[in-house]
Amino acid sequence: MDKLRQVIEEYPRWQDLTVYIDRIELFIESDFSSAQENAKALLESIAQEICKQFTIEVEKNISINKLLGKAFNCF
């Protein structure tokens, strides 16, 4: 988690992601499914942002797997 915080500090445009990290850290001991949901939302948010920057069209109800596939394909 520290590594991710460090990366986000380096690149301020990703700063909104700290909300998810805070939530994951908050829930990881007490409510794992919430921590997991937030981890998924974190990944989704990064993948969405990458697709947006590469002007890749993303369907509204796309699955996380497909979305990540699209984000990786941008590279």
Binding site: L4, V7, E10, K40, I46, F75
Partner: peptide
Amino acid sequence: KTEQEFLISSTVTVCVFLIRYHE
């Protein structure tokens, strides 16, 4: 607990990779 930790840490690693690679 170990599996849970693994799940979260691997997710975070992918996040770090995506951001670093993108930047």
